[in-house]
Design a binder for these strands. Structure first.
Lengths: 338, 338
DNA sequence: TTAATTTACGCAATCGGTTGCGCAATTCAT
DNA sequence: ATGAATTGCGCAACCGATTGCGTAAATTAA
């Protein structure tokens, strides 16, 4: 049981050369169908399994795609991953997934490890704190396809996949304004990240457009940690000018704000309207249900997967599309409409 | 730029043999410190990176752990994965993650692929429909560590990590009874899976204990797909004997039930008390907040990771613990208490 | 000083496929 | 029937690191 059988064994059994066996198994055109059939059949009989280690070594590729995400345990990220995995799996690639835990240090380490382990391509969504991108040059130098999704950065020749965060931020803010808000607070994540910086820009733009002042005290850069909800709500309560609208960069935080606001006696949406971001499952279930921006994570994963695969297989058509923007959509629910 | 440099290059530069270089890099005791230092320094200078393909081939191991989960995009599963990744990463292992999408077919395929790709160990949470386990014999035959978590099965020599689902089901039901429920419906997942079968057993046990009848019409085996909520609520509404308690095997489904029940005019918890399972984030946010069973996913991931690592490194101490049960905890919230 | 150990390193086989090149056998054109 | 083109396959050199075994050099013992 469990004796490893190699192409040499097959070759011997069939009285042909290992080279022919190898080519047969790979359906090489220079081998006659008759021979291929024989090889295939014996391979099946004997339970031959190709040794990936050897194949990898000689081909210098692993059929493996590396992924670095900030955190695995978020419904958004795992939905994206689900899409990536689907595509990768379809095309015979394995996915090696690692998380940076929002730390630049770990992200660098992971990038190194994945490089050493020989991934054929790398997909990255950046950590909260990353502000230097040297750890990716190893990849670009060796022409290993590198693609960023969601939390992207613009490195030369690196395609990115994201939504138009500025437009989305604009839409969210505009929606609040249309529903009567006059003094809107925006809770943002790290402004190092495009996703949050973009949304903030959109927020400002909407204010400009409506000739509302952009007040620094209304812009809160936070790590969106739920522990800070209370502190934030206290701040809202204490603010001089009555806050009547909140645009939060993330549904989970928004949902918890709503809970806390209600506990503090605010009526949502009558006193304060709240809009979130992502369309997490929680946004539908909370009451009042949370208006939000739909961020199609699964689709993003699918596209990221397809894009990287087509890079790998050398189709150049997608390569031209260096920046893919996915459409977002405003979902108006109870938390913003009386 | 980007010329691959090998131990042979290093050997030449240093006028020593490749073998010595290899041993130096691996800190082999038979090499003098002086030589090691030289090698290390030149390796650093030249930017040498060991070729894992070659190392894997000769060592016949990949420093890689395979994982098969039913779905990536669930908050519970991704939390478990997060824990596994943490440990794996700490010990220098990479994680290759694939999803069965609840299909036995895909699970088998994934098991094969991961085997071929040479994972050193495999972690599995079974698909909904899996009822035959032959695809794992490849692993057990070759003594490749195989461990099941959450949705487990008992194969010889395969450790499992889960909670005591029967006890948890018992606790949940008992909690409903204590709070006055007399006619409790249980919504279960596939009874092929230990997790659901166990919870059902616990449910029955609690009923027995309180001398309540176990009515078949009160036990619903479902795929827990949210699309079925309406149908289910209709059934509750139409039931002859008034249902006053529901024990749902999963928070997401439970939360949606609550929403739908309320929409249909039921008061929660006054008319019907509901308890879920998992302690998903959604359970805290919904109103009324959902009583549930805490299922420590992260901890499960950590334990699964540690267990498999210790198998791999040959520590036998954990090997004896063939079945790890993690403690659950009942969390009583508003949905069950007036 | 010489023999017995110990230390430090090199030789060469091995892991199992892959692939450029060359040659023989077969098929085709004339 | 004969040279030309095509087809089918084998030889052998990789891919780059690991490791059992053997031996020269250095150290210790006597």
């Amino acid at each position: 049981m469990a004796k490893k059988i190699t192409i040499y064994d097959l070759a011997q059994k069939l009285n042909i050369s290992p080279a022919t066996v190898s080519r047969s198994l790979n359906d090489h055109p220079a081998i006659s169908q008759k021979t291929k059939d024989k090889v295939l059949s014996v391979a099946k009989e004997t339970g031959y399994r190709t040794n990936k280690f050897a194949a990898n070594l000689s081909k210098q590729k692993s059929n493996t795609i590396g992924v670095i995400v900030p955190k695995l345990n978020s419904i958004f990220m795992s939905t994206v991953l689900s899409g990536i995995e689907k595509i990768a799996n379809n095309f015979g690639y394995n996915l090696v997934i690692s998380q940076s835990l929002e730390s630049q240090e770990k992200e660098k380490l992971n990038a190194k490890t994945l490089f050493d382990s020989g991934v054929d391509a790398l997909l990255v969504s950046l950590a909260y704190e990353t502000d230097d991108y040297d750890h990716f040059t190893t990849y670009t130098d060796r022409k290993i396809p590198l693609l960023f999704f969601d939390r992207v950065c613009d490195l030369p020749n690196c395609p990115t996949i994201s939504i138009d965060n500025e437009a989305a931020g604009y839409d969210a803010t505009q929606h609040l304004i249309k529903n009567g808000c006059q003094n809107i607070v925006h809770i943002s994540g790290s402004l190092k990240r495009n996703v949050y910086a973009g949304r903030l820009e959109g927020y400002k733009k909407a204010l400009y457009k409506n000739k509302f002042p952009v007040k620094p005290e209304n812009i809160i850069e936070s790590d969106l940690n739920i522990g800070q909800v209370k502190e934030f709500v206290a701040r809202i309560k204490a603010s001089e000018q009555k806050v009547d609208g909140i645009f939060v960069s993330n549904d989970t935080f928004a949902a918890n704000c709503i809970k806390e606001l209600i506990k503090e006696g605010f009526r949502i949406p009558e006193d304060i309207k709240v809009i979130g971001f992502n369309n997490d499952p929680v946004s539908e279930v909370i009451s009042p249900s949370l208006s939000t921006i739909e961020y199609p994570g699964y689709k993003m994963g699918i596209l990221a997967g397809q894009s990287i695969i087509s890079h790998l297989s050398g189709s150049i058509n997608i390569q031209s599309a260096d920046q893919i923007l996915i459409k977002h959509k405003l979902i108006a629910r109870e938390s913003t409409q009386i």
